[in-house]
Design a protein around this nucleic acid. Structure first.
Lengths: 153, 153
DNA sequence: AATTAGTCTATAAATTCGATAGGCTAATTG
DNA sequence: CAATTAGCCTATCGAATTTATAGACTAATT
C-alpha cells in the first residue's frame, strides 16, 4: 500500500505535468484543484523539490513547476522520494536497504527471494513509466470511455 | 511494504511447510525457532487457521499444521489474509476493493491505471508461488552458496 | 481429574501517518 | 526601500495502525 502522502504527491505531479511549460502553479491552487490539505501538500512539494523533481519560485508570480520534462520524471522516482522505497521488505531495497535482523543467511532466505522478484517487477513498471506516459494513458482512457473518436494526427 | 505481522506469518508457514507430514507443531516451538513473540504469533496463526490455510489440534500432542499441501498454498493467499490486500491502492484491489473518493472517473485515473499494472504484476508473482516452491528455491540457493553439488536424482 | 495447548477478547505500548500552526526567508513590485 | 507575496522550515498534535501482552476460557488427551 502506498501512503496518502504518496498519492497526493503523484496527483500534484500529474497536475503540474499537465501544466508543464505554462509557468509556476501556486500551492494553494494545486491544493484546491486536487483536494489536498494545503499545509500537507506544502511538505510534499518541498520534499519533491529537495529531491530535484520539482523547482519553485518565491514571491509574486511564484509557485511550483516540474524541474524536468514530464517524459523524464518516472513514477518510481516519485514513489521512492515519498514512500522511501518500492520494496516490500527492506532487505530487497536497492535504495533503502536494511539488513534483516532475524534472517541468518540472506542469500538463501525464501521470503527474500520471492520479495526480490516482487520488488523487481514493481520497479520495472514504475521506473519505466513517466508522467507523460501516464497523462497519455489517462486521456486515451477517457476518450475511449466517452466514445470520442480523435481524427487529429 | 508488508507488515511485520505478514512477515512473521510467512516465516511460520514456511516452517510448517518444512515440517509438513510430521504432525502438529507447538506455537511455543514455532515462536522460539522463528524468533517471533509467542502471543503475537498466536493471533497470526489463528487468523491463518480461520482463513482455512492452517489446521490445529488442542491438548497434548496438539499444535498447528498446514491444512493443505505446501504445493497448494500460495504466498498471495497468505499475504491477502494477513495484510488484507496485494494492491498498492484500494481502488485496484480485487479482494478488498474500495472506491476512491477524490477521483471523479476511475476508468481514466492515471494513477489507478499504473497501480493496476503494479497490482497485477505482484499478484502474478505471489499467486503463482507456492510454499513448496519457496522451500525449493531456498534450498537451491543455499546449496549453491555452499558449493555443495547434489547428485541425487 | 489433571494437564496440555489452542481460542478469544481486551487492552497496552509504540510507531507511523495525516494534518496543522506559525515564524522565517527570498523575490517581486510599487 | 518598504510592502506584499509566496515558498521554506521546524515543531507538534491527534488519530490510526501496528506490534505486543495479559488472562480467562475451551477442547482434547492421559
Amino acid at each position: 500500500m502506498i501512503s496518502k502522502k504518496t498519492k497526493y504527491g503523484l496527483q500534484a505531479l500529474l497536475a503540474l505535468a499537465r501544466n508543464h511549460g505554462a509557468g509556476p502553479v501556486l500551492i494553494a491552487d494545486l491544493a484546491e484543484q486536487e483536494q489536498i490539505p494545503k499545509k500537507f501538500l506544502e511538505l510534499i512539494l518541498l520534499q519533491l523539490k529537495n529531491a530535484g523533481i520539482l523547482g519553485s519560485r518565491k514571491g509574486k508570480g511564484g509557485g511550483y513547476f516540474l524541474a524536468k520534462n514530464p517524459a523524464q520524471i518516472t513514477m518510481g522516482s516519485a514513489v521512492r522520494v515519498l514512500d522511501g522505497t518500492l520494496a516490500p521488505v527492506p532487505c530487497v531495497s536497492e535504495t533503502a536497504y536494511q539488513k534483516c535482523t532475524e534472517c541468518a543467511d540472506e542469500e538463501s532466505c525464501g521470503i527474500r527471494l520471492v520479495m526480490k522478484d516482487v520488488r523487481d517487477a514493481v520497479a520495472d513498471i514504475l521506473d519505466n513509466t513517466t508522467l507523460k506516459e501516464v497523462l497519455v494513458r489517462s486521456s486515451d482512457a477517457s476518450k475511449r470511455a466517452n466514445k470520442v473518436i480523435d481524427y487529429s494526427i
